[in-house]
Every structure is written in structure tokens, then in C-alpha cells.
Design a protein around this nucleic acid. Sequence first.
RNA 1: GUCGGGGUAGCUCAAUUGGCUAGAGCGUAGCACUCAUAAGGCUAAGGUUGUGAGUUCAAUCCUCACCCCCGACACCA
Length: 487
Amino acid sequence: MQPFYITTTLPYVNADPHVGFALELVQADIIARYRELAGDEVFFNTGTDEHGVKIYRKALEAGKSPQAYVNEYAEKFRNLKNVLGLSDDIHFIRTTDERHKKAAQEFWRRCQQNGFIDEKPRLYKIRYCVGCELEKTDSELVDGKCPVHPNLELEITEEENYFFKFSALEPKLKDYYARNPDFVVPDFRFNEIKAFVDRGLEDFSTSRLKEKMPWGVPVPGDEKHVMYVWFDALVSYISTLGWPDDMAQFEKFWGTIETPNAIQMAGKDQIRQQAAMWQTMLMAAGLPPSKQIVIHGFVQSGGQKMSKSLGNVIDPVAIVNEYGTDALRFYLARHIHPFEDSDFTMEKFKEAYNADLANGIGNLVSRIMKMSADYIKDTNIRMGTNDTNGYEYPKEYARAFDLYNLQAAAEYITQGIARIDRRIQETEPFKLVKRDAAAGQKIIAELVRELSFVAQLLLPIIPETALEIEQLVRENKMPEKPLFPRK
RNA sequence: GUCGGGGUAGCUCAAUUGGCUAGAGCGUAGCACUCAUAAGGCUAAGGUUGUGAGUUCAAUCCUCACCCCCGACACCA
């Protein structure tokens, strides 16, 4: 049994879960289930990122304490487990969990002990736009002015911040990239981050003054500061494993410096944080880097970014309510590109639902199981040898998973389904069985076995349906209602 | 602006190192069938492969120019 670790990024809990994060969760869940079925021991992590100024402000606006505010959201995100049909043994870490906060502080201490976080804060220039009531960074400014309020002068103040010595780890990071050509998937994302690092790394600030923004993990040894939110959030990937207390579990799943083992899923806006900053943080703390970062694209709607004002927001919960969890899972696997942006509209979804699920899988189950129920009474004929365990995945299917190409894996299945449909048409067992019962039964039995195999391939992607098919096969019944009613 | 990726059937995408009539799925139309969710099968229509030039016996693929689209270019959790 190989240990397998996979985590999503932790969504920031200042809004309801959107379909983009549902995509990341479902992708990770499909991979986790596949590895489990392939015999690995799986640790699958997700959670919520709950600190920082945005949450602090929203909580105050809502007249709630930050903790009460994030508690509500954490519940919504935790509920995705049911909505999306995620694995039962999924781990869910919250960055406001006590053990996480302790881990983040220990992580900070190690970085500091190793000389990668300054002992004393540095002075940090802050540009503040009075019009926006926000701090502005260089890249946000046009000609040194706020593009929204170019007539207003920026207020420049100095603030003390702790800095992380990103620059000092540049050679080590480059070296890790060079030795691990598949570290970031897909390759064009890897090229982007390599180009970024090649331009030279600058140290970044990693704390905030508590008096301005208290909602964060306290910096060890300096009560005037809290950690900048992303610093503590990244540590969640290992605090979920019980680091630093449970080193056995940590090393088992996160791996060692010689053999890193952690797979991380993330959106394309996360490359820098996950593939560069977090990796150097791990190096700074003397811990193993991640093994691979898998970057997916964004889900758009009608060719545009989803936004409330455009009214094109796809709500995963609403889809599940109308079509069911597996319908959404299958669509995300089959029709959302594993790495590029994809368009998601209800029209496309419905079309795909009817084609893949109602006319495809659902109908195939009905037609085969009807014949089996009517013409095969002796289940021994049907099942043949008992080969339910120890089957091997087809190479093409397994390879698709190795490359994180769930679209290819799902397509492999839909092609298999088309092949079986064609075979029924060509061999016409429903006619044959009336002329020659034995010959007809033989073909029907083979079809049932093929269906059973399809169910096995479906198991990681749409587990609920796959189990239902297996049960129908065991009981030799056709579904009482269509598995996926045509819409 | 610099660098990178891309523009192929109504839609989403494929086409090993340039080489037979540029493919698939969905959608559309027709035909025969009936085990099935009027589902499934077969057939068909549909493309001057962004534009213009060039290299070559031969270009979706290589070169140049141009037009569009997308991404990266650090403090966006």
C-alpha cells in the first residue's frame, strides 16, 4: 500500500462556494477515489481559509464576531461533502482550528530559527488611496497614482512588517524545479512560474500589525503582529496531517526530503503561492517540498467570467438539486478541460446530461438489465468466475489518471459505452435468445459483465451510480426508474 | 510593451517527425430496427484549417508579415 496525499487549496470564506471550487474538489475527490481503488492508502484534504482583513471587514459589516462569521461559512463549505458526494474519510482543516494555529506558529519559529524570517520587522512603505480606502501595491498603480482616483494623492506611511527571505531561497527553488520536470502540471504553467522565478525573487512581507487588523494567527514572540493570512493558510496542508506533533503521519503522507509525496490541486491564480512561495517556505522550515502541483483553469459562463451583475453565476448546489450529484460530477470530469478554462452554461450541461447519462449510461443499464432479468435466471451463467476483486484498470484509463486528465478517463468510459451499445445492435441478443436460448444468454451474460466493468471504471467519478449499477447486476434487476431520467 | 500559448465543421476539441478523400463527440437531417429512458444502430449534410505571401513534389503543420483571442510579468486568500 502506497501512501497517497492530495489536497485542494483552502477557499477563502468570504462568499458562498462557487462552481470553480466545486471543480477543484471534485477533481481531487475523483483522483483520491481512484488511488484508493488502485490500492493506495489515501489522505485527502480540504478545508477553509478563515483569517485576514477581508473576512475581518465583512464580519464587522455583518455585525458579527469574526469567529461567528467564519463558523457559518465553514459549515457551508463542509456541506459540500454531501452536495458533491465527496469521500467519507475526507479531512477538513480550518485555519482557525487550535492545532492549525499552533502548527503555523511552530512553522514560523522554524523559518525564523533557520534565518529565513527576520528577527526584527523591517520598515515597509504602504501606499494608501483615500478614495478606495485601500492599500495599493506598485502593480496596481498607474504613473504612481490610483487608476480609479488619479486626482487624489496617495498617502504614504511606513509600517513595520516581518519579511520572509524569498530571495535567499531562489537558487534552491530553481534547483528543485530543474530536478523535477513534472513538478507543476501542465507544463505551460510550469514555464510561467519558472519565468517568474528567473526574473528574480524579492522578499515579501509576512505579517500585519495587530492594531490595524487583529484577525490572524499571532506571530510568536511579537504580540504586535499577526501573520499575513496566506502564510498561515499554506501551513494548513501539513497541519492537517498533525505536523509537528505527529511526525509519523506527516512523513508517511507528506513524504521526506528525498521522496516528497504530496499532490496539490490549485487554480491558475495560485501558481505563485503554491509552486514558489509555499515551496520556499517548506525549504526554510527544513521540510520536504510538495511532489506535484496540478493547476486547473477557471470555469467561465457564456464566455465570460461569472459575476453576479451579469447573472451568469452557476450555483453547484442548484444543479445538484435538479440533476443530482453524479450528474454534476460526471460533467465536471467529462466536459471541463483539466487545465484550460472551460465554458459552463446550463444549455451545455443539459445537452451533455442527456447525451452522456440519460441516453448513454442510464439507457445502457436499462437495456442490458432488462434482457438479463428476462432471460437469465441462473446467475452463475451470468457472472462466470468470481473476478470481482483484483481487476486491473486498462492502461489508457490509468494513464489518464497519472496525467491528471480526468477528461480522458471519462472519455474512455463513454467510448466503452458506445462500443457496448453497438455490440447489442450487431449481435441482437434480444432476437437471438428467442431462437437459440443458450446462444442468446451467452451474449447477454457477456454484456452484463461488460456493464459491470463499466461500473468499476465509473466508481471514482460517479460512485453512487456505479454502486447502484453493481447492485442491479447482483440482484439481476432492471432499474425501476431510469438512472438518469431524460430532461 | 516583453515573453508564452492559441485561431480547424453550428458548438467543444483531435490530427505522431510536413504526405493518402483534415477526424471525433454533441447538435441537425434521413433510413431500418425494437432489448432500452421516442433511448440505441446505420447513413448523410456541414471545413478555400484567421488573412496575405514564401519554402517544398507536397503545408493545418515550416518561414515572414498582418489581424484577432488568451495567459504570465509578485504581496490578488
